[in-house]
Computed example of a mutant assay.
Amino acid sequence: MSTLHRLGARGRRVLSVAGLYLGDGCLSEHRKAVFALRIACDDAYPGIIADAAEVITTVNPGRPVHRVQAPGCTHLVSYWKHWPCLFPQHDPGRKHLRPIVLADWQQEIVAQRPEPFLRGLFLSDGCRVNNWTTRQVGHHVRRYEYTRYMFSNESTDIMRLCQGALDLIDVPWRMPRPNALSVARREAVAVLDRIVGPKT
C-alpha cells in the first residue's frame, strides 16, 4: 500500500503545508520536546492566511492554530511534538545555507500528487503578475500583455524541488535569474491558475 493511499487527503495536505513551511515557515523547539510550526503570512492576503490555517488544522486536528500579529504579517502557530516527523527538513540554520531534501515518503506523495506541494510553494514564494512586451508588426510597434507566474527562493535545493514538481505535471519553466523561476506559456499559466490562482 502506498504512502499516499495510507495517508489519503491528509497526506496531500501535509505536502501543501510542507510547501508553505519551505517558503515562509520554521520549526522551533519548546519545553517537553513540543515544537512550534510558524508560518509567516502577508496581511495583504487574508485568503492565504485562512487557507493556510485550514490546511494546518486538517493536518493537526484538535489543536488550535494561533494567529500572532506582527507588523504587516500574521504568524500562524501550531504546537505539536510530531512536526519534525512530518517535516524532516527541519534543522538549525537558514534553509538556503543547508541541504533541503524530501524524505522518501514525501517524494512518493509528490510524485503521485505534486499539485498540493506546488500550491504551498507558490503561495509562499510565488506570485501571479501581468507583464507586457512589444513587437514590431510591419511598420507598427504593438504592445502585448501576458500573465506569468514567478517563484523566487535563495535555496537551490528548494528551487530544484519546485522545478521537479512542475516537470511532473508538464508545466514548462525557465530561469531568468538563478533565484527566480518563470512560467509564462499560456497553457502552463492556465494549469497554475487551476492549482494556485491569484493571491487573495
Rank of each mutant, 00 (worst) to 15 (best):
I169E: 05
G197F: 04
D167E: 15
V34C: 11
V189Q: 12
V59W: 03
Y144S: 14
V34R: 15
P61A: 07
L4F: 03
P61E: 06
N153R: 01
A53M: 14
I39N: 11
A33V: 09
F117V: 05
N60Y: 09
T133Y: 11
L166C: 15
H75G: 00
V183T: 09
E54P: 01
R128L: 14
Q163D: 01
H75E: 04
A53S: 15
R148K: 08
S152Q: 08
S78C: 13
P71A: 08
Y79P: 00
R94P: 00
W132K: 15
P84H: 12
S28R: 14
A36P: 00
G8C: 04
I158Q: 07
P172R: 12
E29P: 05
F117Y: 05
D125N: 15
V55K: 06
E115L: 00
L27R: 02
S16Y: 14
L121V: 00
P64H: 06
V68F: 08
A184H: 12
G164F: 01
S182R: 14
T58L: 07
A53P: 13
I48R: 15
T74Y: 00
Q89V: 10
D104W: 14
R94N: 05
E115G: 01
P92N: 15
A188F: 08
W83C: 02
R31P: 00
K81L: 02
L15F: 01
W80Q: 12
